[in-house]
């Protein structure tokens, strides 16, 4: 028994990697933590919809919209990296987010919120709206005011328009096909 073990040990030599004195065994394929670049984020929320662990969060706080990357909950799937249209989340091979301070696990950016012209609620970030404006302008499209409403007001507005349309139709005595 002993001789077999000794032979095994001799053949295998020293296996230990003396991290942290030596560099770790890390392949370049490793899916590590994300680096969140607040200057690039516009607060579109695409990342929060794909994240399986809800480690990316978007929250309305007062008249600000906060985008938050919680590394402590991140499962390193990199879905958000592929989803972010603005390159605000950069994939790295870093595994070093260890800390003794819980708050260090959060990366946040607070965006200025845009208020709905009708009800005044915060529903999107100013940056996002500016960006959409810019894109549409470059396509030569002017934005209708209706599009600046928050989703709720937009729904109400659409229903109102539909109703007005229907009443108009009925007045004219037109029968509508769908019951």
């Amino acid at each position: 028994m002993i001789h077999r073990i000794l032979a095994l040990a001799l053949k295998s030599g020293v296996a230990t990697v003396r991290y942290p004195r030596q560099p770790p065994i890390l392949t370049e394929e490793f899916r590590g933590f994300l680096v969140f670049d607040p200057t690039k984020c516009v607060g579109c929320g695409a990342c929060t919809r794909v994240c399986p662990a809800n480690a990316m969060n978007l929250e309305i706080r007062g008249n600000e919209i906060v985008v938050e990357y919680f590394a402590g909950r991140c499962i390193l799937c990199h879905l958000c990296f592929y989803a972010c249209p603005f390159g605000a989340l950069v994939a790295t091979t870093s595994f070093d987010r260890t800390t003794t301070n819980f708050e260090d696990l959060f990366d946040r950016v607070a965006h200025e919120g845009a208020a709905c012209p009708s009800c005044g609620s915060i529903h999107a970030t100013k940056r996002l709206i500016q960006f959409v404006d810019l894109v549409l302008k470059s396509e030569g499209i002017e934005i209708e005011d209706r599009l600046r409403l928050c989703p709720e007001c937009r729904r109400i507005e659409a229903l109102r328009a539909l109703n007005a349309f229907r009443i108009g139709m009925e007045r004219e005595g037109v029968e509508h096909g769908v019951e």
Partner: peptide, 26 residues
């Protein structure tokens, strides 16, 4: 008294070593 956090899923062995060292230093 002290809490250390080693995020990751799973946390790499290297990160765990880092974590213990940080914790102990604290």
């Amino acid at each position: 008294d002290v809490v250390g956090y080693v995020p990751g899923c799973p946390a790499r062995p290297e990160a765990i070593i880092d974590g213990i060292i940080k914790l102990v230093t604290r």
